[in-house]
C-alpha cells in the first residue's frame, strides 16, 4: 500500500482512538465539581492577571467555592466593585464595606522635556535596564524614566505614554498592580479613586535639589500641609496624602492644589 496513505491511516487512527478514549474517560471519570465554580468563572473578568494571589481566574474560582468568605469575595482586585458585588450576591455573603474603586497612580508628572539629563542612556530601552545603569541618566533619582515598562505589562491597555509619561485611564484601570511591580523606580502605586487627587512627584531629595532638577517636583515647602493639615503631610521631603480621611471627590483639597507652587499636587 502507498506509504503516504498508510501513515495517514495509522496516525489518524491513533488520533481517533485517543480522542475516543479521552471522550469516554471524560464522561466516565467525571469528577463531581462544585457547580458554583462555573458561575463564579462567568462573573470573573477572565484576564488571569494574578492580582488575587492565585494562578488565574479558574484557581480563584475554585478557592472561592471551597471556602466561601467575604474576604475572598473581595479578592478579585481587577474585577472592581461590580464583580465583588456579583460574587457576594452569588455566594450569599454580606457586601464588603470597603469596596470602592481603586486605580494605579503615577507619582511623577515631569514630561520628557522637563527632565534634566545627567547622561545619555543608549542601552536596552526598558526602565528596568536603564535604572540599573547609574539610575537611568536623569538628574532626578526618583522620577519616571519613560521607557514604558508599565505600558507593556498592563493587560488592560489602561496606560498610554504621553510626552514620555505614562497616563492611566481610570475607566480601564482595574488596580491589578502589575505596573506597580514593573516600575523599577516605584513611582506607581494603587490609590482609592475617591479623592481624585495625587501628589505627582516621588522625589525625596531636599527642596533645593528638587527645584534644580525639575520644574514640577515637590520641594517640600509644606504649604499644602498648612492649608489642609488633616489630609496632607510632608514626610522625607515629599508631600503625602492620607486617603483614609473621609471626604469625596477631593473638594477639600482644592486649596492645596491651587496653592502648590510647583503644581505637583494634581487632580486626576
Amino acid at each position: 500500500m502507498d506509504i503516504l496513505l498508510l501513515s495517514v491511516i495509522v496516525l489518524g487512527g491513533l488520533g481517533f482512538i485517543f480522542a475516543a478514549l479521552l471522550a469516554l474517560a471524560a464522561d466516565y471519570f467525571r469528577a463531581a465539581e462544585d457547580p458554583r465554580i462555573v458561575k463564579i468563572l462567568a462573573i470573573l473578568p477572565g484576564t488571569n492577571c494574578g492580582a488575587c494571589g492565585v494562578a488565574g481566574c479558574r484557581a480563584f474560582a475554585e478557592k472561592l467555592a471551597a471556602a466561601a468568605g467575604d474576604v475572598l469575595v473581595s479578592g478579585c482586585v481587577s474585577g472592581g466593585v461590580t464583580v465583588v458585588q456579583k460574587l457576594a450576591e452569588l455566594m450569599g455573603v454580606a457586601q464588603p464595606t470597603d469596596a470602592h474603586k481603586k486605580i494605579a497612580a503615577v507619582h511623577c508628572w515631569a514630561k520628557v522635556d522637563q527632565r534634566q539629563a545627567l547622561a545619555r542612556y543608549s542601552g536596552v530601552m526598558t526602565c528596568q535596564s536603564a535604572n540599573l545603569v547609574a539610575g537611568g541618566g536623569l538628574m532626578c533619582r526618583y522620577g519616571c524614566l519613560g521607557y514604558a515598562d508599565c505600558v507593556l505589562v498592563c493587560p488592560f491597555d489602561a496606560i498610554k505614554m504621553e510626552q514620555g509619561l505614562p497616563v492611566v485611564d481610570p475607566d480601564r484601570c482595574t488596580s491589578c498592580a502589575l505596573c506597580v511591580a514593573a516600575c523599577p523606580r516605584q513611582i506607581i502605586d494603587i490609590i482609592p479613586f475617591t479623592k481624585r487627587v495625587i501628589v505627582a512627584c516621588s522625589s525625596r531629595d531636599s527642596g533645593a535639589v528638587t527645584r534644580k532638577n525639575c520644574p514640577v517636583g515637590c520641594i517640600a515647602c509644606k504649604i499644602c500641609e498648612k492649608e489642609v493639615p488633616e489630609i496632607f503631610k510632608v514626610i522625607d521631603n515629599l508631600a503625602r496624602i492620607n486617603y483614609n480621611k473621609p471626604g469625596e471627590s477631593g473638594t477639600e483639597c482644592e486649596v492645596a492644589i491651587n496653592k502648590c507652587p510647583t503644581k505637583c499636587i494634581v487632580k486626576l
Partner: peptide
C-alpha cells in the same frame, strides 16, 4: 507497517493523550 519515521508525531500524540487520561483518572 514500516512507519518508524512517524515515531516523533505518534509519541507526542501518545504522551499528550496519556497525560490527559491520567489526569482525568487521578482526579476521580
Amino acid at each position: 507497517f514500516h512507519l518508524e519515521f512517524l515515531r516523533t508525531a505518534s509519541f507526542i500524540l501518545t504522551i499528550a493523550a496519556l497525560v490527559q487520561l491520567e489526569e482525568l483518572y487521578l482526579r476521580k
